[in-house]
């Protein structure tokens, strides 16, 4: 499996994937935005402010799944001592930081018309801020620790320590009384309380943002591969 993600073997595939995503991205974005801003109906209670859901919810999902991915890769790095896995998680981390930031900001903008305040120190919001801090620490440890092996070890430990925050974020709305509404879509149970007229734009926006994540990841991973090759040019 490790050999399958050998950079030399997939470099051409990365280039082609970047071209492919670039070619379909704007068409899909336009379709998703049309559904999110025009076709989807206003909510009976929240009115048009519900449209913020189409950027807020996918951002929150991406921020959580990206962190889980980093933790998984960090554990694998500890077991297999494969540098390439570390390069992958290093390329994913900025995406997670970006979407955590977006989930927090769009959440605040949704909170103002819904709750009457931009911010409240309740369990869900606070745990998202903690996630943002873990992402920042993870990226800073890679950036500022000069010794690469040491940086990989410390960043992996930070990522694994932050794992405890993931179930707290997910279940915070059930465990505590929070301003944040409970989950409308439960992936594990396969249930949803969202009407299909809102579910379609939500899924379209999720698809577009996932494609964006894939694009950024592939470009960052390609940069990392080139950086390593450049460093070892005499040994090639």
């Amino acid at each position: 499996m490790i050999n399958l993600i050998n950079p030399s073997k997939i470099f051409k595939w990365i280039e082609n994937s970047i071209k492919f995503i670039n070619s379909i991205f704007f068409i899909l974005l336009l379709i998703a935005l049309t559904f999110a801003l025009i076709f989807s109906p206003p909510d009976y209670l929240q009115g048009d402010s519900v449209r913020i859901m189409y950027v807020h919810v996918p951002s929150a999902w991406i921020s959580l799944s990206t962190y889980s991915c980093i933790v998984f890769l960090s554990i694998l790095t500890f077991i297999f001592k494969t540098k390439n896995l570390m390069l992958i998680s290093k390329s994913i981390a900025p995406i997670g930081l970006l979407f955590t930031f977006l989930a927090i900001v769009t959440g605040a903008l949704w909170g103002k018309p819904t709750w009457g305040v931009l911010w409240a120190w309740d369990a869900r919001l606070t745990s998202m801020i903690i996630l943002f801090v873990f992402y920042t620490l993870y990226i800073a440890s890679i950036k500022f620790i000069k010794q690469e092996d040491k940086a990989h070890k410390i960043s992996s430990i930070i990522a694994i320590l932050g794992l405890i925050n993931i179930p707290i974020i997910k279940y915070s709305v059930d465990w505590w009384n929070t301003l944040h509404q409970p989950q409308s879509i439960k992936f594990l149970e396969g249930t949803s309380t969202i009407h299909s007229s809102m579910m379609l734009p939500l899924m379209l926006m999720l698809l577009v943002l996932l494609l964006y994540c894939a694009l950024i990841f592939l470009m960052k991973y390609k940069t990392e591969i080139i950086r390593i090759k450049k460093k070892n040019i005499k040994r090639l």
């Binding site: 801003l37 402010s49 913020i52 903008l109």
Partner: peptide
Amino acid sequence: NMNGYGIFVWLSFSIT
């Protein structure tokens, strides 16, 4: 205007 919610909706999409 989005029935008065325009500022929040457009700001969210723009920032994103």
